[in-house]
């Protein structure tokens, strides 16, 4: 689950970066940025959820 979360974090970054690099300033970049950040929030939730149960197995 942590790996999936980290992947989502990266995917969100890719979406945001693509919005700036590929779209012109006149395009609705805000929409892409919002989508990218939402993806990252989901990724953060997954990574934190994966850590939620602390164990003494270390």
């Amino acid at each position: 689950m942590k790996a999936a979360g980290l992947f989502l974090l990266f995917a969100g970054f890719a979406i945001v970066t693509s919005a700036f690099v590929l779209l012109s300033p006149a395009a609705p970049r805000g929409l892409f940025v919002a989508a990218g950040i939402a993806t990252q929030i989901l990724g953060l939730f997954l990574t934190f959820r994966a850590h939620y149960t602390p164990s003494e197995g270390h």
Binding site: L6, F7, L9, F10, A11, G12, F13, A14, V16, T17, F20, R29, G30, V33, G36, I37, Q40, G43, L44
Partner: peptide, 20 residues
């Protein structure tokens, strides 16, 4: 927008990279 892109880079690039 530039600041948001920086936050996205921190969460989406720096965190996975440093963790891996």
């Amino acid at each position: 927008m530039a600041q948001t892109a920086t936050i996205a880079a921190l969460l989406g690039f720096v965190l996975p990279l440093t963790y891996c």
